[in-house]
């Protein structure tokens, strides 16, 4: 059970780096706009997050003007 769960989590990749680069924003700017700590955004950016709140997801997509599928991809 545990190994299968870990591999499912590893399949999700967060494209926060690419999206920030495209928009010329830094992680600090995003943290300020979204209201999520820099540490948590860094966890998300480095694919170390195990779960994400809908409120966080919605706030990031609103600020970056993107869809959820642009931010999170499988593979």
């Amino acid at each position: 059970m545990a190994p299968a769960k870990q591999s499912d989590e590893d399949m999700i990749h967060c494209r926060l780096d690419e999206l920030l680069d495209q928009r010329g924003m830094t992680l600090t700017d995003l943290s300020r706009e979204v209201g999520v700590t820099l540490a948590n955004l860094s966890v998300l950016k480095n694919d170390r997050a195990r779960a994400i709140r809908f409120s966080t997801l919605a706030a990031i997509c609103r600020v970056l003007e993107c869809e959820v599928g642009d931010l999170l991809v499988i593979g």
């Binding site: 948590n40 966890v43 170390r48 997050a49 195990r50 779960a51 709140r53």
Partner: peptide, 9 residues
């Protein structure tokens, strides 16, 4: 419960 929410952003 705290362990369950580790890594939750």
């Amino acid at each position: 419960l705290q362990r369950d929410t580790e890594g939750l952003v």
